[in-house]
Design a protein around this nucleic acid. Structure first.
Length: 807
RNA sequence: GCGGGAGUGCCGGAGCGGUCAAACGGGAUGGACUCAAAAUCCAUUAGCUUAGUGCUUACAGAGGUUCGAAUCCUCUCUCCCGCACCA
């Protein structure tokens, strides 16, 4: 056991902080931070959800400028990303981590503004000839350098507007901006393009400034359209894509479309039928145009037919909900005209203009025309490198971990501010810096209120100094607790390396999906960093090799359990009514544990029935020798149940247990070993009951301490299972006959006769059959001379399928 | 918008190329037991058909691959989760 609030634990948080500081993994900087008014503290990016605080979902997060402590998690961005694939974790957690780290390859390109280089990051250097403006973030620290006197008033007005917009409205906001008055020089074309301030550029990603290519980026497209900034097409698709509406072409011609290229049905519409998309190689484009011109219905009375003459040889093609290539403003008008000319209402077509953002072939790009996007990227970056105006780079979405919190419950950050020496780390021997006990809660950081605690001597010059009052994010605590578990009493070190090396890594970690981008990233970072600092063995790079996300249990009404809904199921109450093992069995059997499941009162009743039967039947079973059939079944069950448990498919394990029990019930006698095996298999699901049964069948010690049963592959005989299936089939056949006879002839059958292949005689026990059918059943070998067979049915018998006669 | 997951019979939920009208549980219906009920047991639970059979529809929808698809591929629709203007 350990408590992270105990100085014996958080001492080591401070210790690690200092180690990180030594290695340059800790730094302090003034930053725009997320501030929650309710928590009275800053939050990490990971802790802001939809602009709200993760703990106070009704409280908007404010942006403040504060000096804060950061951990350089980004140093490990690459390794954190590449190692994800080595983990045996749920796929969605892995993708969430990948997206969170968000690696993009691209280029940093310098635009010269007033003689100074301003870099921008882009993943599409191939579109550089299409740049018609540059947008800088409204939060950019050096924004004012770009704003001219003439434009200042307007920019200020714009910034004011952004400031007063609520976070929640920001999301729905259109792309907006104003011209700054300055111009940037495109390093490839030397062309001057205007610089705008925009609300859609993220300040702390890349350089907070982007090159805008409206023809090939949706955001730039919207912005340019709104402010009538010119667009320049520099990429064209490798294939032209035509959309053909079923109604517009005679039926017999539709199949001909395949001759021109790949045909995909993209939509089906009540009025227009199917929308086929034909992708045509550019070389063949004329053929399809020719075909369409000859075959498209031309009558406008037809109400929806395409006009052949609405095509031209440009690759602007009408598409219900896909892409357009736009050459200039006129093209937009033109395209709209085409849409309208088709006589198809805009809303029915979901007709929308979009930028062409796919890769393709370069056009209007000087010497690079005709190259594919991928190739062009390489060449253009090389050209920029030669000019010393650009370079290949990689960008991450992952930000450094902001750990400063202005709250009491957290590890005090072991730093000291000296008027002379500046920021000085606390000496290791002075750890732990304990939280002061005499504090007042209320407004602001409680630590600020205790003057005694606050004042300290500088470790360097012994002069007057004061302590850092920020505490660490509590995720710092949880980032290495599993290491401390291996050696939780160590007072000399955070843990003994040998012990940790022995135990780690965690083979199976279980937790909720909500940890995907917080705890699980921090803990991975910690492990890597501590490994590099020599605290862990070199090759220990990951804390948790396997991860399992359990699902949530919902109430009887299907909703998440909550007090306000009154649908909370209280284990103690369930225990009172059913016994906790019944509840446990039920929970294990509803669905696989990674899924959300629903409590169901009826379902528990079902489990209770089973539990009762088991309690009733097991002690009464005669101990002797197991039949071959049962031996086969129990060995199969041991195998299956063990495997299911191993892969955490408890629901399937329970099903197999139930089946095994059904077989057990029908046995007259069973070996002690097999009976014990059954109880052992039951014990993980119903531990108390199993223990009780164990005693009743006179097992040694506790079942919970007994060896898990092993199966004998040789005893599993699938032929026996087949025989049983045949038996069941025969029962259902007989029932079927009985049903038909009683319905058709209204007769009541008294006796049933079965004629079986001699070798199968053992498979059909007349006693068992009689019991199951509730009627007298006699079984004969087909070749039995003394058999009773008035209608000569015996001849119909086949292997696995006895002949039947009833009267 | 992007990314991930999922859509199966009255319900929950297995199955993930043939052995599938589809495990298991719940519910419903009928029957046995009972004076009666509960519990228990048996049967039925897509439709038509039949002395144990055969057929037709069926695993969100539309296409496709295959001798063969609930299972694989493509597209569409719907739902859930995550990210949210990351250039």
């Amino acid at each position: 056991m350990l408590k992270t609030s105990d100085p014996d634990y958080y001492k080591w948080n401070q210790y690690f902080f200092l180690k990180f500081f030594e290695k340059g993994l800790v730094y302090r900087k003034k930053a725009s931070v997320n501030w929650c008014n309710k928590c009275d503290t800053v939050l990490a990016n990971e802790q802001v959800h939809n602009g709200m605080c993760w703990r106070h979902t009704d409280t908007e997060v404010e942006i403040k400028q504060l000096e804060q402590w950061f951990i350089k998690t980004t140093n490990y961005a690459d390794e954190l990303l590449s190692d994800v694939d080595k983990l045996d974790w749920p796929e969605r957690i892995k993708t969430m981590q990948k997206n969170w780290i968000g690696k993009s390859f691209g280029a940093e390109i310098d635009f010269v503004i007033n003689g100074k280089k301003w870099p921008v990051f882009t993943t599409r250097p191939d579109t550089i000839f299409g740049v018609t403006f540059v947008v800088v973030s409204s939060q950019h620290p050096k924004l004012m350098e770009l704003v001219t006197k003439e434009q200042k008033k307007e920019v200020d007005k714009f910034l004011q507007k952004i400031k007063s917009t609520k976070q929640e409205d920001m999301d729905k906001l259109d792309k907006e901006g104003v011209f700054t008055g300055s111009y940037a020089v495109n390093p490839m074309t030397n062309e001057k393009v205007p610089i705008w301030v925009g609300n859609f550029v993220v300040a702390d990603y890349g350089s907070g400034m982007v090159m805008a290519v409206p023809a090939h980026d949706q955001r730039d497209f919207e912005f340019a359209k709104k402010y009538k900034i010119p667009m320049r097409v520099v990429i064209k698709p490798e294939k032209a894509e035509y959309t053909i509406i079923e109604k517009s072409l005679p039926k017999d011609k539709i199949s001909k479309l395949k001759d021109f290229g790949e045909v995909v049905i993209i939509k089906e519409d009540k009025n227009w039928g199917k929308f086929y998309m034909v992708s045509v190689n550019l070389n063949n484009e004329n053929k399809i145009i020719d075909f369409l011109e000859k075959n498209l219905l031309k009558s406008s009375d037809d109400g929806g037919a395409w006009y052949a003459d609405s095509f031209n040889t440009s690759n602007v093609v009408v598409f219900p909900n896909k892409t357009f290539i736009l050459k200039n403003d006129n093209d937009i008008q033109d395209s709209i005209k085409h849409g309208l000319k088709l006589g198809i209402p805009k809303n029915q077509l979901e007709f929308e203009l979009k930028a062409f953002t796919d890769y393709g072939l370069l056009v209007n790009s000087q010497g690079f025309d005709g190259l594919g996007s991928d190739e062009a990227k390489e060449h253009i970056v090389k050209a920029l490198e030669f000019k010393k105006l650009g370079r290949k780079t990689v960008q991450y979405k992952l930000r450094d971990w902001l750990i400063s919190r202005q709250r009491y419950w957290g590890t005090p950050i072991p730093m000291i501010y000296c008027d002379k020496c500046g920021i000085v780390p606390v000496a290791e021997k002075d750890l732990p810096i304990k939280l002061p006990e005499n504090v007042r809660f209320g407004q602001g950081n409680p630590l600020l209120g205790n003057k005694e605690w606050l004042s300290v001597k500088c470790p360097k010059c012994n002069g007057k100094a004061r302590r850092e009052t920020d505490t660490m994010d509590t995720f710092f605590d949880s980032s290495w607790y599993f290491l401390r578990y291996c050696d939780n009493k160590n007072s000399k070190l955070p843990f003994d390396k040998k012990k940790v090396d022995y135990w780690m890594s965690v083979n199976q970690y279980i937790g909720g999906a909500e940890h995907a981008v917080m705890h699980l990233i921090y803990a991975r970072f910690f492990t890597k960093a501590l490994s590099d600092l020599g605290f862990l063995r070199r090759d220990l790079r990951e804390p948790f090799t396997r991860l399992f996300n359990q699902g949530m249990l919902h109430g009887n009404d299907g909703a998440v359990m909550s007090k306000s809904r009154g649908n909370v199921v209280i284990p103690e109450e369930v225990s009172k009514d059913y016994g906790i093992d019944t509840a446990r069995l039920f929970l294990m059997s509803i669905a696989s544990p990674d899924k959300d499941t629903q409590w169901s009162a009826e379902g528990v009743d079902g489990s209770l029935r089973f539990v009762r039967r088991v309690m009733d039947v097991i002690p009464r079973i005669k101990i002797a020798k197991s039949s071959k059939v049962f031996e086969s079944k129990i060995n199969k069950a041991i195998k299956d149940v063990s495997e299911d448990i191993e892969i955490m498919r408890y629901n399937l394990a329970v099903i197999k247990l139930r089946k095994l029990f059904e077989a057990l019930e029908n046995e007259k006698e069973v070996s002690k070993k097999d009976l014990e095996s059954f109880v052992k298999l039951l014990s993980p699901f119903c531990p108390h009951l199993a223990e009780e049964l164990w005693e009743k069948i006179k097992g040694k010690g506790f079942v919970s301490l007994a060896e898990w049963p092993e199966y004998d592959e040789k005893k599993i005989d699938l032929r026996l299972e087949k025989a049983e299936q045949d038996f069941e089939k025969t029962i259902s056949d007989i029932n079927n006959i009985l049903k038909i006879i009683s319905e058709r002839q209204g007769k009541d059958v008294k006796d049933i006769y079965l004629y079986v292949i001699p070798t199968e005689l053992d498979n059909y026990n007349s006693e068992l059959l009689s019991k199951r059918l509730g009627k007298s059943v006699k079984v004969f070998k087909v070749n039995d001379p003394k058999k009773y067979d008035p209608e000569s049915k015996a001849g119909k018998a086949k292997p696995g399928k006895p002949a039947i006669y009833v009267e």
